[in-house]
Amino acid sequence: MRQPGSSAEAQLGLPEYRGHTTAEKFAFALLVVFILAAIAGVFGDGPLSQSTAASGDGQMRVEYQRFCRRHAQQLLDITVPTQAGANSVELRVNAEYLRRVQITEIFPQPLQSTVHQTGLLRFATDGSGGTLQIRMHLEAQHAGSQQARLSAGTQTVDFKQFAYP
């Protein structure tokens, strides 16, 4: 029979029941915030992550993800201005960015691609002027911050990404 004033836990030699501890409540709240942040795109692929960078006059634009994940596919949608009468356009990618990412696919296929001080990609154009849409699939090879500089002719676009491990 239970002693008056003693709990079942005490009778059974168990620690006193304390309900949810502050640490448990905090951990649960943290989990909820973590998932909401993931939905919002803080860890890549979401509205907070999607961004656009443009050159000074806005003619060259790059749609990219501010946050990406190491070894996960990401997209760069690049809009490059082309000149009337020219049958090709060159896109340069800075060496630091090329060291940190692996380009897995490019559409349209470039006529020529070389890597020296910078990466150089040459694309065919129809000579009518306007813009060329280029889509690059790439994977970050290292976690951390990476600075990209893409240029075509006199247009330059700079943007920064953070790759999660």
């Binding site: 649960f28 989990l31 909820v32 973590f34 998932i35 993931a38 860890f43 890549g44 994940r69 190491r70 070894h71 996960a72 596919q73 999660y164 491990p165």
Partner: peptide, 20 residues
């Protein structure tokens, strides 16, 4: 094809949260 640690954490967190 995303084998990053952060992706695993998101997936596990989502499953646990849904279950709770």
């Amino acid at each position: 094809e995303d084998f990053s640690i952060i992706n695993a954490a998101i997936v596990i967190g989502t499953l646990v949260l849904l279950d709770i």
